[in-house]
Design a protein around this nucleic acid. Sequence first.
DNA 1: ATGAAAGCGCTAACAA
DNA 2: TTGTTAGCGCTTTCAT
Lengths: 342, 342
Amino acid sequence: MANKQASITTIATNLGLAVSTVSRALSDHANIREDTKERVRQMALELNYQPNHLAAGLRKGRSGILGVVVPHISGYFFPTVMHGIEKMASKAGFHVMLCQSNEDVKQERANLKMLLNAQVEGILISMSSTTRDFHHFEKVQSQGVPLVFFDRMPDMAATSAVVLDDHQGAFSVVKHLVEQGCKRIAFFSGPQHLNINSNRFKGYADALEAYGLPFDPELVFELPNLTKAAGVAGIETFLQLASPPDAVFSSYDLPAVGALEVLQERNIRVPQDIALSGFSNEPFTTLISPRLTSVEQRGELMGEAAVRLFLQMHKRTDNYSPQRIMLKPQIEIRGSSLRKQP
Amino acid sequence: MANKQASITTIATNLGLAVSTVSRALSDHANIREDTKERVRQMALELNYQPNHLAAGLRKGRSGILGVVVPHISGYFFPTVMHGIEKMASKAGFHVMLCQSNEDVKQERANLKMLLNAQVEGILISMSSTTRDFHHFEKVQSQGVPLVFFDRMPDMAATSAVVLDDHQGAFSVVKHLVEQGCKRIAFFSGPQHLNINSNRFKGYADALEAYGLPFDPELVFELPNLTKAAGVAGIETFLQLASPPDAVFSSYDLPAVGALEVLQERNIRVPQDIALSGFSNEPFTTLISPRLTSVEQRGELMGEAAVRLFLQMHKRTDNYSPQRIMLKPQIEIRGSSLRKQP
DNA sequence: ATGAAAGCGCTAACAA
DNA sequence: TTGTTAGCGCTTTCAT
């Protein structure tokens, strides 16, 4: 079955040409007669020739491969980013090599090593949640391989990254809740060592201050994980307070759904008694009732921007200054927080 | 910044050794003295040596890359499969190269060509919904590159594939609905040229027959697409019938949610008046109320099985017989269809 | 417009 | 145990 793979050499000997001529013909070089090109193309077709990207890459010193590392491919966000990356990268003629760190630094390190071995021309990465030490990132950069972070980035000096303005996203949510008449706004916070979570927290706190509401530590619940169950635990804690909140803003959508279920079971009205907002704009936010207010993270845009950043760095590998792109979030106001009709 | 990339040759000259010795030392060959190995490893570390997978691949005639083509990376299913693939492939020492066809045959063809160029050692693919012609698949096989389909496969003779037993999944759902006392069970069907959809349809029809219920064409709604809106249209059609159904089984979860919303708006009780079931077990099925009965597709298992199938074919490239693996679906019975307490 | 030849980094005979 | 050498398939000077 397996046809013997035809190479440029095969074509050359079959046609009585030199390999260099065939190579040039195939890449449509100017200095090759049109009829020669035609004969070459014809023979290539006939022999079912497959160009060998590996060999070309080796020779040219460019693999044409872009490496991507994500913490996981689940939920809605990362697949969406991947979509943006894949689209943009293949448009620029790059193949995408994908790895998952599974939120584990060790795997992340192994992933980076693997990708460097594969001679990728750049790496796009969203940091794992267990990463505290950044040596492996610096090593990539020291090899001269463009490194672009997206969404989750380390606190490092000279890095390119494209992130969402989480601070503004959180700020807008609180602003909106205040406008809806909420006075005691509680917060579900995620692990603070990740930039995205600490920025959301800051956005929350800054907005409280901006709108003259006191910051009350009792109204902050640290989520042990980003599940529905964590939200259940959080809302139950809040409901036991002497003076419970009249709004809950969750750093992620799933815990907000947990809270919603508890509230509905106890016949506490949403949004009238307690307004609710999530963050991430997962698709299910529009499938539950009431629909959940949330913050859209622009995953596809983020993926595209990350590739564009890489392409810039790739052009002039000698001296580039690391760039940061901050995408504007988009708050999606829905039934879970909308008390007044606009 | 950019360290000049150290090669085996660099190590060799630095140590006064032959490249072959270094190569063997690095791959821990038996016939190399331990202290030599140690010196080599030391120098490799010192020079920050990165093995060049491309060169090794070219020389060995094995790229160590596994190609994957999916229609899209969104929703829950494909990312889950990807997760299984990635896990299993990296365990077997393969890098994964990912492409999306965006449900477009042309892109699918381009993807396959790209992957062959990249010298992948095998391709795992889930067919796009617009694929009717299978030449590009045959071409891959004729090149002797193992091709494994997952979930969506073409109607071709000698192909390896791992699929879900959609027929049985659908059959079980109808059986369950019958047991709940449903007599007029309606069906939302997907595009019939895809194996998964036609099998679900057959499972539905066969179950009706098995349980002595008449097949009524009025109770079949062909979904124009797999969205919530399509489900809205479907249920509205059914509700206008002289004798509406007492259950709706949707080929996919999202349309079922559309139906659910319409029913709730009209105060038609679910499951008492109309029972509901979806298919795919998307995570949101447990976030809505009532929770949606569905069929779990075992995405991760499917991904793992696909890689395992590839590995088998890869071992003995000469003569293998194409294999099919059919995974058993798992019906998740939830509030949307549960009338009687068990 | 075409050809000859070198070499990208690595591995695997074959020699010593 | 180590070294020598050829060559994977391709691109790219440098000649012709």
